[in-house]
């Protein structure tokens, strides 16, 4: 690759910062953008630099916004006593789609992952603790993923928030709606048995 011009090298190298993109795919992307889609490339460059310039984390919920406080957090019709904690903006979007939650959110932008070196400092958990302890929140709903990392995050938050006098709940897990036991994976059934509830 050393024979190619340095700005091309730089582009290929820059593309490698994308998750899952190795040297081969980065090279393919660079050639595509430069050879077949220069307008697309220019648009991508503009969008990237403007996003970098105007986007910041909402002071209240930590998701991306162009304002200090995002529109959702500023909406007076939402219930400020409930705070739902999710890992990523995509998780927030899913819960919003259910149209069955009217409280506010906090987006962690990740999850605790001790083996990857992601701890409370990397996740900026103090920001969440300050937000949850601002006096308006009464219940924190933990909606992190049902992976080991999501579980570790939920457990940690439950003890930290519980110690601060907040009511903490966790999304329940079990057999999917409309799911037949015969076609549900065994791990899910086993966990649903462990977490069974009286009726």
């Amino acid at each position: 690759m050393s024979a190619s011009p340095s700005s091309l090298d730089e582009l290929i190298d820059a593309l490698r910062c994308l998750p899952g993109v190795g040297p081969k795919s980065a090279q393919r992307m660079a050639y595509h953008l430069l050879q077949r889609d220069q307008r697309g490339a220019a648009r991508l460059a503009r969008a990237m630099s403007s996003a970098l310039e105007v986007l910041r984390h909402c002071e209240r919920c930590n998701t991306f916004t162009e304002d200090t406080v995002c529109q959702r957090c500023a909406n007076p019709r939402r219930d400020p006593s409930q705070l739902c904690v999710v890992e990523m903006p995509a998780d927030l979007a899913m819960i919003e789609q259910t149209q069955s939650y009217n409280g506010l959110y906090y987006v962690l932008m990740g999850r605790l992952s001790p083996l990857d070196g992601v701890g409370p400092r990397e996740l900026k958990l103090d920001k969440l603790l300050a937000r949850a302890g601002d006096g308006s929140v009464r219940e924190v709903i933990l909606a992190t993923n049902f992976t080991n990392e999501g579980e570790a995050t939920a457990h940690t938050l439950a003890s930290l928030l519980g110690a601060r006098g907040l009511t903490v709940s966790r999304l329940s897990r079990g057999v999917p709606v409309g799911g037949e036991l015969e076609h549900t994976d065994i791990g899910t059934i086993a966990q649903a048995l462990v977490e069974r509830r009286s009726v």
């Binding site: 001790p114 083996l115 070196g117």
Partner: peptide, 12 residues
């Protein structure tokens, strides 16, 4: 890393 993270969590 697991030991470091656990220690940081206990300090929160």
């Amino acid at each position: 890393q697991s030991r470091r993270v656990l220690k940081e969590l206990q300090e929160l």
